[in-house]
Amino acid sequence: MTLRQATALRYQDGQLQILDQRALPGRQQWLTVQSTEHLVELIKSLAIRGAPLIGIAAVLYLAVLARQGLALEALRQTSQVLRQSRPTAVNLMNLLDRINPVLDQGAEQVEAAALALFDEDLALCDAIAEAGLPLIKPGMRILTHCNTGGLPTAGRGTALGIITRAQEAGLGPFVWVDETRPLLQGARLTAYELKAAGVAHRLQVDSAAASLFADGQVDLVLVGADRIAANGDTANKVGTLMLAVLAKHYGVPFYIAAPWTTVDPACPGAGAIPIEDRDGSEVCQLGEQQLAPADTQTYNPGFDVTPADLISGWVTDRGLITDPGAFIA
């Protein structure tokens, strides 16, 4: 069985391949997942990334192992190992929790369940795009952060999916693209996807965002999410909180776009969201070039959390939500 839409994943003939997003935009490089440890390394190094796609990759790899005849207990242990690979992104836990009950039902059932979750994400992306489309006015100048298109999802994306849907609708959006430190996912991936979609855009350094707001150059901020707590507090790529504070100060609407699989009703709020602490080499080195003295201590969180009271609304596959109380189970 194969996936019914080309994405940053390939699942065919019992193998899982991922498009190495570290190599983009320079080259397209597909890697075959060789082991559980290999997939964990690919997730941690952001070769495969995006909360939805990480979860999908994890369940598809369990299907690979089930087809290889791995014993039930070993499948369950693998699921637990994969669960720890990206602590902030709750989609990973949600999808594993949904496939775990079928791990004892045979390879065909595991594969069918994994492919169904892939197809579900395709539909979720389309639903988010339609729910968010009314937010976009003709010629609107939109600021986005990190990468939220087809690369980190099974479908057209979340925040970027809304923007490309607006382009298709003839609304002519213009996008300010944050470079998104430390791994430049905005510069490398968002600009890459916007160019492919024919959306007008301009890349900016992260620290220039305040000047854009002050000059009245931003009409809307639209970003994704890795976890939405029960009170609406939302974790996203580090730098998002700064944009939310600026948007509040300058009176610019600030919206989150994410599937319901990103909601964690068991998480009460910001303090309960684990934040991944990434290797300092990401900011101290550029390839082999040393940017800072070798013994420099760094603060390199992968994410930050935006309080619900700074968020204008959440665009989900269930529609536009403006009341954070809607996330309480």
Rank of each mutant, 00 (worst) to 15 (best):
residue 291 L to N: 05
residue 280 G to I: 10
residue 266 A to Q: 12
residue 258 A to M: 02
residue 286 L to E: 08
residue 286 L to D: 11
residue 273 I to K: 02
residue 286 L to C: 15
residue 283 V to E: 00
residue 287 G to T: 06
residue 282 E to A: 09
residue 278 R to Y: 11
residue 254 F to G: 06
residue 286 L to S: 13
residue 272 A to G: 06
residue 265 P to Q: 05
residue 277 D to T: 15
residue 256 I to K: 09
residue 287 G to D: 12
residue 280 G to K: 05
residue 290 Q to R: 12
residue 284 C to F: 08
residue 278 R to F: 12
residue 278 R to M: 14
residue 272 A to C: 07
residue 286 L to N: 13
residue 290 Q to K: 12
residue 262 T to Q: 01
residue 279 D to C: 00
residue 267 C to V: 09
residue 282 E to G: 04
residue 290 Q to T: 15
residue 274 P to I: 14
residue 266 A to C: 09
residue 267 C to A: 08
residue 254 F to C: 09
residue 286 L to K: 12
residue 272 A to Y: 04
residue 288 E to N: 13
residue 261 T to E: 03
residue 255 Y to R: 13
residue 284 C to Y: 11
residue 287 G to R: 07
residue 257 A to T: 05
residue 268 P to V: 03
residue 276 E to N: 08
residue 254 F to E: 13
residue 275 I to T: 02
residue 279 D to F: 08
residue 268 P to F: 04
residue 277 D to Q: 15
residue 281 S to D: 12
residue 288 E to R: 15
residue 261 T to R: 04
residue 275 I to G: 05
residue 254 F to M: 08
residue 271 G to E: 15
residue 265 P to W: 05
residue 273 I to G: 00
residue 288 E to D: 12
residue 260 W to A: 15
residue 277 D to M: 15
residue 258 A to V: 07
residue 258 A to N: 01
residue 262 T to E: 02
residue 262 T to I: 09
residue 285 Q to R: 10
residue 265 P to N: 09
residue 274 P to N: 13
residue 288 E to A: 10
residue 279 D to R: 10
residue 267 C to E: 10
residue 259 P to K: 03
residue 258 A to I: 03
residue 284 C to S: 14
residue 267 C to S: 07
residue 282 E to R: 05
residue 283 V to F: 00
residue 293 P to N: 06
residue 282 E to L: 14
residue 273 I to S: 03
residue 291 L to K: 01
residue 255 Y to N: 14
residue 265 P to K: 02
residue 262 T to K: 02
residue 258 A to W: 01
residue 276 E to R: 01
residue 268 P to M: 03
residue 275 I to Y: 02
residue 262 T to V: 06
residue 292 A to V: 15
residue 257 A to Q: 05
residue 275 I to A: 02
residue 266 A to N: 11
residue 259 P to T: 07
residue 280 G to Q: 08
residue 272 A to I: 06
residue 255 Y to I: 11
residue 259 P to S: 01
residue 260 W to D: 12
residue 256 I to N: 08
residue 288 E to Y: 06
residue 291 L to T: 06
residue 291 L to I: 06
residue 283 V to C: 04
residue 261 T to V: 14
residue 284 C to N: 14
residue 263 V to K: 00
residue 257 A to K: 04
residue 288 E to K: 10
residue 279 D to N: 12
residue 275 I to S: 02
residue 271 G to S: 10
residue 292 A to L: 15
residue 292 A to T: 15
residue 273 I to R: 01
residue 269 G to Q: 03
residue 270 A to Q: 14
residue 287 G to E: 11
residue 254 F to S: 08
residue 287 G to N: 13
residue 262 T to D: 00
residue 257 A to D: 11
residue 277 D to G: 13
residue 268 P to Y: 00
residue 269 G to R: 00
residue 290 Q to N: 10
residue 268 P to S: 05
residue 280 G to R: 05
residue 258 A to H: 07
residue 278 R to H: 06
residue 256 I to A: 01
residue 270 A to T: 12
residue 262 T to M: 05
residue 284 C to T: 15
residue 282 E to Y: 10
residue 286 L to I: 07
residue 288 E to Q: 12
residue 268 P to C: 10
residue 277 D to H: 15
residue 257 A to M: 11
residue 277 D to R: 12
residue 265 P to V: 03
residue 276 E to K: 12
residue 255 Y to D: 05
residue 286 L to T: 06
residue 280 G to S: 09
residue 275 I to K: 07
residue 282 E to F: 15
residue 260 W to G: 14
residue 288 E to T: 14
residue 268 P to L: 02
residue 283 V to N: 03
residue 290 Q to D: 14
